[in-house]
Design a protein around this nucleic acid. Structure first.
Length: 259
DNA sequence: ATGGTAGCCCTGCTA
């Protein structure tokens, strides 16, 4: 089973590249973030033509998530459950489904903007809600994949220059603690399960020629429960998808699980 | 020196 996640920064702008990538990479499941599309505008027909069913969750021109699957898609839910208070209520940042016997969650964690702002504070509260929701919905012994743009670089080796990010969001201790808390519950960073080296990024700012200068961050994560972690065949960040015409500023993260 | 780009639409806001 090949599972991938990709923040496409507008599915409308990126549809040709997503179609091209699906044909090239042949994922069984693809989690999307920043679709920036209301559900009524989601291009489900384009994906059907390539053999994928889809579950979309979007309201307007901001955020928006989806799951594409060619191994079936059932029990679709959007957002947290009714009892969970969502500090970003109104945004579309989470969609879950069961695909080919695996529980899949596509997440788009709030950016947080600047440390010290209420956006940053609510990002941490959103992480609390995510942790609580996962713990309520699933067990660490379930086959579960939580994939998406976490807007956190888990460690210093996940950014091109820790010094350049001092005082910025994505690298603060509370944000990193929020990711560790998910790991302590029972999720494993699939990419780190396979690779230790630094310099492997999933996001490069469009500005300053950051991609070509290799100034990036690894903020797109595929987290899996232990029963799946022990079956990971390989993992990779498809850096090539950041090249060429009209790329997203993120690139896909892909894992193969022997199930 | 607070820069730079891309994408959306209330040509400013979000990332």
């Amino acid at each position: 089973m090949r599972i991938a996640t990709w923040n496409v920064n507008s599915l409308k702008a990126r549809l040709p590249r997503v179609e091209e990538w699906l044909e090239y990479a042949q994922p069984d499941v693809l989690c999307l973030q920043e679709t920036k599309l209301a559900d009524k505008n989601f291009p489900s027909m384009a994906f059907s033509a390539l053999g994928y069913d889809s579950a979309a969750h979007g309201h307007n021109q901001w955020n928006g998530v989806a799951i594409l699957s060619r191994v079936g898609i059932e029990d679709v839910t959007t957002g947290f459950d009714d009892e969970t208070i969502d500090p970003y209520e109104g945004d579309a940042r989470l969609v879950a489904a069961r695909c080919g016997g695996i529980n899949v969650v596509s997440v788009y964690v709030p950016n947080g903007r600047e440390v010290g702002t209420e956006f940053y504070d609510r990002k941490l509260v959103w992480f609390d809600a995510l942790h609580g929701w996962i713990a309520k919905q699933y067990s660490p012994t379930d086959a579960l994949v939580v994939a998406g743009d976490f807007n956190v670089a888990p460690e210093d080796r996940d950014v091109w220059s820790p010094k350049a990010f001092e005082g910025s969001t994505h690298v603060t201790e509370p944000e990193r603690a929020a990711v560790r808390r998910l790991e302590e519950w029972g999720l494993v960073d699939a990419f780190r399960h396979q690779y230790d080296q630094d310099g492997l990024y999933s996001y490069w700012d469009y500005r300053r020629g950051d991609f070509h200068q290799h100034r990036g961050m690894r903020i797109d994560l595929v987290l899996v429960t232990e029963p799946l972690a022990e079956k990971i065949g390989w993992a990779l960040i498809d850096r090539n998808a950041r090249k060429g015409k009209q790329p997203s500023d993120h690139t896909p993260v892909v894992i193969d699980i022997d199930v």
